[in-house]
């Protein structure tokens, strides 16, 4: 059976400006299950953002395709909400209007009061209440702006939520706070999330599964690392977990060394399926099976 979101033999080539072609990635194939939080991790320039744009429907792939919930992805859709790195709020609208803008697009049949009520509820979920919601984005801090953007995306209940380096432009402290908030909102939903980042700790904290991308050109999704740390997670507690450093070291090794070694060559196979990887240092003897918190289902 196909996963909820199936990326099949996705290939992207651009003209290189010298008459030739530059292959960003070729035959990338992977899946995301419903309700799963998948993070894609890789160096800049490896084509993460290109994959994101294709999933959002803002760009067309050279070859292959994306199937979500049995339907081929063609063009942008309200079923796929996007949080961009630079927030992409409309600066001439107030914070509240930026969210009602999205809600009204999703539910054209709703009354104005319904739309506003729904928007206020989701702004409240990211901690924006009272006077603040009538301010313009330019009067908010970067962290608050990204909260608005997250509220706008969650308020629309998209089938798939795409996060394009959402915390990339924030300082470390703010980033931590908003990561916690994102986990809190996401925890209450069955929202499927696909996120891009180049921050390893952020990926471990948030993800059910991390896809590792090699460097371009001919980048590929080389591994799919299951995060064997039970939820709910918090930034201070996960570092104590025996699997944390094992997973972290694996990721650091990959980004630091193997992503380069594996780069730049064609694999010769038809489909570049990521190799599943499970790192679990929790010995079952110390901890009986029944007491272990359940892990989420993982693809492959």
């Amino acid at each position: 059976m196909k996963p909820f979101l199936s990326i099949e033999k996705l290939t992207q080539r651009f003209p290189d400006g010298k008459g030739g072609e530059l292959t960003v990635f070729e035959d990338a194939t992977f899946g995301v299950e419903k309700g799963e939080f998948v993070v894609i991790l890789g160096h800049s320039g490896c084509g993460k953002s290109t994959i994101m744009n294709i999933l959002a429907g803002l760009a067309d792939p050279t070859g292959g395709g994306v199937i979500m919930d049995g339907q081929e992805v063609k063009g942008p859709s309200l079923d796929r909400g996007v949080v961009f790195q630079n927030y992409s709020l409309l600066p001439w609208l107030s914070t509240l209007k930026n969210v009602t803008f999205g809600v009204a697009a999703r539910h054209p049949e709703w009354s104005k009061a319904q739309v506003t009520e729904h928007a206020v509820k989701y702004l409240g979920m990211v901690g924006l209440e009272g006077d603040v919601i009538h301010r313009k984005p330019s009067q908010l801090s970067g962290g608050m702006r990204q909260r608005v953007s997250i509220a706008r995306a969650f308020a629309n209940h998209p089938k798939l939520l795409l996060l394009d380096e959402p915390f990339g432009a924030l300082d470390a402290l703010t980033r931590g706070t908003i990561q916690d908030e994102l986990l809190k909102i996401w925890g209450g939903t069955e929202q499927t999330v696909f996120m891009i980042t180049h921050d390893i700790d952020e990926a471990i904290l948030l993800a059910d599964r991390i896809l590792l991308m090699t460097n371009g050109p001919f980048a590929r999704v080389a591994e799919s690392v299951e995060i064997t740390i039970p939820r709910p997670r918090s930034r201070t507690e996960i570092v104590e977990h025996p699997n944390y450093y094992a997973i972290r070291n694996h990721l650091v090794q990959f980004l630091g060394r193997r992503s380069k070694e594996m780069a730049g060559s064609r694999t010769g196979t038809d489909t570049n399926r990521p190799e599943p990887m499970r790192i679990d240092r929790t010995a079952p003897a110390d901890e009986p099976e029944s007491r272990r918190p359940p892990l989420r289902a993982v693809n492959d």
Binding site: L58, R80, V82, A105
Partner: peptide, 12 residues
């Protein structure tokens, strides 16, 4: 283009 993309992803 970000703002135009916002319009696109909201199916305007």
């Amino acid at each position: 283009s970000d703002w135009v993309n916002v319009a696109k992803t909201h199916e305007l």
